[in-house]
Each structure stands twice: as structure tokens, then as C-alpha cells.
Write a protein that binds this DNA or RNA. Structure first.
Lengths: 133, 133
DNA sequence: GTTGTTGCAAAGAATTTGCAACATA
DNA sequence: TATGTTGCAAATTCTTTGCAACAAC
């Protein structure tokens, strides 16, 4: 996974990738750094920042804006959008096909040349929603 | 416009609002501050930050994430989405109706309780696109 | 007169960068 | 061994806050 992204697999990087995997919510560089701090394979804060950025550039992780800071999360290949739970932070991916039609149509009407688009739904996931009746 | 947002109309605030009006691209607090600096009614940087935040809270301006900093722009009422030109920075508003159907449908499938959603298209506007043929 | 606002400068917070020691191919 | 990587600490950048002077109602 690292090699295919052209990123040399070192101990700190593997630790970061491990910290990222199996996680449903996005994490901040700072958070990840703190987590790894206690473990057997710590990684310096700068390294965490550098690695996450590299992974983002390689398309291995998605980047989310969480207030003033950015959070990262391993993501599937291909274009997708997100449902972000404000309760537990979990992120679910959604296929982008339908949105893409809207994007294409809207762009055509405005003679706009699209380079990228982005859609996000915020709210509460099934687990975090108050149960009703 | 300020009064209806519960914001007391002072000279600096009017200057900020004037600086904002008639502008097609979003501006940063820093940029606006620099612009007003030279004019007849300057506004302190902190005041620009405070006022823009107040206007955003009041729904008078939209907030855009431009790299690490945020940019602001007067916006229409009601829910809408954006086409952001990467060439000149111009922002066009698009009605949100179609996206809302997708949001509602997607949320229903996932049993997700929506509190907000966001969609943005990036690319080049008609004026910035290289002319073809 | 009371309460909200301003501007400055200091504080805060997230992220980036310089650089010498170190690990990888 | 040549090149990429690490970690630390310092530097940068955007934004917020404390506070005394000031303006609006």
C-alpha cells in the first residue's frame, strides 16, 4: 500500500498506517501522534504530518476539515462522497455517480469546466440517532 | 442588512460590508483588512475577523475554505451550492433543490439523520476557460 | 449612563521547515 | 555510499482574546 504510492515503508510510516487502519472516524495528525506516542513504535509529530500529507496526495486517505484542523481517514479507490456523523465521527462513503450527473449538467449550463467536485452530508448516523417511538 | 442581522451599524462594519459588496470572488479577512487600510475608513484586523464571523453566523455571507484560510462572500438567502472558479476566484451560486433529493434519499437508505449538507464544484468559469475551436 | 465596539498587541493553535543524525536501498 | 527519512525545535501563519479608550442607543 505504501510502496504502490511510492512511499518508502519505514517503521514510523507503518505505525501511522496501522494507526489509521480499522478506524471508522477520521483522525488528526495530532491525535495520531499522541496515540503512537505511548506505543512501541512512536512517530514524531512532523513525521505524522508529512506522512499523512503524502498519503493524501497519493489518494490513499481522504482529508476532512474539522473546524480549524484537518483529519484523515483511509479511503476506498475511485470517486466517492461522505456522510459524516457529528456524534461519533464515523464517516461512511457513498458512490458519487448520481452527483456526477448533476455536476455535469450544472457545469454545462454555466459553461463551466469542472476539475473536481465535493459533496458531504453531516448529521447523526443510525447508532447515534435518538431512538424513536 | 446589518440591523436585520442584529449587528449594530458602525463605521468599520459599514466599511467591511461595502468592501464585500459588488465582489464576485470571496475575500479573506486579511485581504479585506489590507484593502480598507488604505481607504478613508480603515478597520482593524480583529474587527474584520469579528465582523465577518458575525455576518457568517447571521447567514449574510458564505464561508469558503481556501487552503488554510477562510474566505467570505455575500450570499443570497436560502440554501444553495457553489461553483468556484480556480482561475479568477469567482463564485456562482446554484439552487440546491436537486442535491437535496439525493441527500434525502441517501440519508434514508443509511438511516442517517441529516443536519446539513454541502456541495461544491471547482473548475474554470466561462471567462477563464481556454477558448476552443 | 450603560452597554456594545474598536484597535492594538499579546496569546494561541495548527502546520511547516532547517538541519544534523540516521536508516534504507 | 548516495539518497531519502526522522525528530526536534524554531519559525510561520491564521485567528482569537484581554483590555482600556471610545461610540451608539
Amino acid at each position: 500500500l505504501l510502496e504502490q504510492a511510492g512511499i518508502r515503508p519505514t517503521a514510523p510510516r507503518l505505525a501511522i498506517l496501522t494507526g489509521l487502519s480499522g478506524r471508522r472516524a477520521a483522525v488528526t495528525a495530532q491525535e495520531l501522534h499522541h496515540e503512537l506516542r505511548g506505543g512501541t513504535r512512536p512517530a514524531g509529530l512532523a513525521t505524522v504530518y508529512r506522512t499523512l500529507r503524502a498519503l493524501a496526495d497519493a489518494g490513499v486517505v481522504d482529508v476532512f476539515q474539522r473546524g480549524a484542523e484537518e483529519a484523515f481517514r483511509l479511503c476506498g479507490a475511485g470517486h466517492h462522497h461522505h456522510l459524516v456523523c457529528e456524534g461519533c465521527g464515523t464517516v461512511e462513503e457513498v458512490d458519487a455517480a448520481e452527483i456526477e450527473q448533476w455536476v455535469a449538467r450544472t457545469a454545462r449550463h454555466r459553461r463551466f469546466r469542472v476539475t473536481s467536485h465535493h459533496a458531504e452530508i453531516n448529521g447523526l448516523c443510525a447508532d447515534c440517532s435518538p431512538v424513536k417511538g
